[in-house]
Design a protein around this nucleic acid. Structure first.
Lengths: 116, 116
DNA sequence: GGCTCTATTGACTATTAGTCTATAGAAGCG
DNA sequence: CGCTTCTATAGACTAATAGTCAATAGAGCC
C-alpha cells in the first residue's frame, strides 16, 4: 500500500497545490484509512519528493494555526507520475496473470484433477 | 514485485511438488526475469513459508547432482493462497482507482483546465 | 583428484516502512 | 495573561523487507 503513497500524493498535487495535512486527509479517496496512516509517512514522502525535485514547496502567507508548507508539483513530478502510471499498468497486468493462473488451477481441482 | 513472490511459489506448488531451483526457473512465467532474481530470495521465501506452515519439505530420494529439497503445499498454504487472491483483487481495484483518477486529471488538462 | 555444474544455505548490507516523541504557532478561555 | 488545545511539521529511533555475496556440498566429467 505504501508503494502507492507517492503517486497518490503527486496525483493530488496535479489537481492543485496543497499542504501536508490536507493531503493526509484527502488520501482516504485512495483507500488509505486516515486513522491508520501516520502523518510522518506523508511528510517524509513529501520531503523526499522535494529532494528528488518532483515537487517544490513554500511557506504559505496566510495564517490560521501554525505555518503551512504549500507543495506544488514540478514538471519533473508530472513526468514521474506518467512513468508511475505506466508501471502501474504493468503491475496490474502481472496481478491479472497471477489471478488467472490461480483460477485455472482451482478449476482443474474442481474437475477432479490430481492434487499436488 | 517481491511481494508477489510468495503467492507465485504457492501457486506453482499447488500444481505439484517441486524443489527450489526448478521453481526459480519457472518463475519466469510470472514476469520474474531469472537473471535478475537471486536464488537466495526464492530459498528464503520457501524456508519462511515452511516456518509458517504453508508448505512442507523433504529431501528427495532420487539423485543426480546434489540433494534436492522437495516442497509440497499444505492445507494451510492453500487457504493462505485463497486469501492472497482476495487481497490481490483489492490491490487491483486500488490500482484501477489511481489510474482512473490519473486519466481524468490528464483529460482535464487536455481540455484546458487550469494547471496546478 | 581437480574442475564444473546444480542446489541449498548463511551472513551481511541496504532500503523501506512504522512508531513514537518533540516542536511550534495560533486560538480559545477562564 | 498564562494555560490548554488544535493544527501542522519534523526528527529520531526501531522493525521489517529486500538485495548482495560468498560458502558449502555432492555428483559427474575429464
Amino acid at each position: 500500500m505504501m508503494s502507492f503513497l507517492e503517486p497518490c500524493l503527486l496525483l493530488m498535487l496535479q489537481r492543485g497545490e496543497a499542504h501536508g495535512y490536507a493531503l493526509l486527509d484527502a488520501l482516504a479517496e485512495f483507500g488509505f484509512e486516515p486513522e491508520f496512516l501516520d502523518p510522518s509517512l506523508v511528510y517524509r514522502a513529501l520531503r523526499e519528493m522535494e529532494a528528488a525535485g518532483l515537487v517544490s514547496s513554500k511557506w504559505s502567507a496566510q495564517s490560521l494555526g501554525p505555518q503551512r508548507r504549500l507543495y506544488r508539483i514540478s514538471q519533473k513530478g508530472n513526468r514521474s507520475l506518467e512513468e508511475w502510471a505506466a508501471e502501474l499498468h504493468q503491475t496490474r497486468a502481472e496481478i491479472d496473470r497471477l489471478l488467472q493462473a490461480y483460477e485455472s488451477v482451482k478449476k482443474h481441482y474442481a474437475e477432479g484433477g490430481d492434487a499436488a
